[in-house]
Design a protein around this nucleic acid. Structure first.
Lengths: 165, 165
DNA sequence: TTCTTTTTTCAAAAAAAAATGAAACCTCAT
DNA sequence: ATGAGGTTTCATTTTTTTTTGAAAAAAGAA
């Protein structure tokens, strides 16, 4: 297999993977491209490689910068912006978790908390109460583990993995 | 807050949560409904409560049965099918992990393995090789942890949580 | 300031995903 | 075999998400 072919394959795979995880396919592809590129790339490079429009490229680059997965790099004497991907995988995973936790787990915790208000009143409806409590139990544990993860470095993570297995 | 209102809110929240996780909103809502219902429900009950069509209800009920999150229940002397949700939360989470791991993690592992073939050849392209290796390292660990999780019972999981925090 | 280059925005178009509903299909009781 | 009551399928429609592209805005350079 050619190196270029392999890179292409990786970009496609990462795109598919991303879209399975609620991350827009193009955003994941831009991320993959910057991840495996040793040189900083500009918007036109990304547009050309992924065959996407300028608007699309811009949107997704911004999103990646928001997520802390890509940095802007200014070359002295050059007007256009270049971008580099965060290469530290542990950091990448951490950042993804920070964002997804905020967007997806925290609202659930909030709603579960609200739903507790009713529970007390009606003893009749055990099924409902039990489900809410179980989900809350689980998601609060997940919340804590993720927080720990977010604050930790890769050696902690390695240790945690080892302990679990 | 009324009990019915609370249930409705839970169903909506679970739907939103699901769609953030790559699970179709309606499927998550059907799941939520069956989770908090103490009685088995038939297709018409589900259609009426969620205001969805017969086809849609059928599709999503089947998908939930596939995922092992819902069971068919036949009432003696009754022709129509009733459905009950799996109420054991640990089991629910386990089943979800089994399915998503198969669909989403395993293909990535497979592709990473394929991409290793090229790596050896070209020492020049360190960036690419390193990224692939790092992702592989991480995803293999995740794979093992999830396998362990899938085979374990809730007490193991609790322990693992405690050890990590 | 004015011209040039680059980035950003956003309404409209396209694509993808999900839902509908009616016909086809089962399955059982008669 | 027939029909009633239920389930499944799937072409079509609707909704949602993503992408485009051109105009507007910004950011120097002269």
């Amino acid at each position: 297999m050619e190196l270029e072919e392999a890179k292409q394959k990786f970009i496609q795979a990462w795109g598919t993977f991303g879209s399975n995880w609620g991350i827009n396919r193009t955003m994941a592809q831009v991320h993959a491209l910057l991840l495996i590129s040793s040189e900083p790339l500009c918007a036109d490079d990304i547009m050309a490689t992924l065959k996407i429009s300028r608007g699309n490229a811009n949107m997704n680059i911004r999103a990646l910068i928001d997520w802390g997965l890509v940095y802007k790099e200014l070359k002295p004497g050059e007007r256009r912006e270049y971008f580099i991907g965060e290469k530290d995988m542990w950091k990448v995973v951490r950042q993804i978790i920070v964002h997804r936790k905020k967007k997806e787990l925290e609202p659930v915790l909030k709603i579960l908390e609200e739903l507790k208000d009713i529970e007390g009143k009606e003893e009749e409806n055990e099924e409902f109460v039990k489900v809410i409590k179980d989900i809350q139990l689980f998601s609060e544990k997940a919340d804590r583990v993720l927080d720990k993860f977010i604050r930790s470095d890769s050696s902690w993570l390695m240790n945690a993995f080892l302990k679990m297995i």
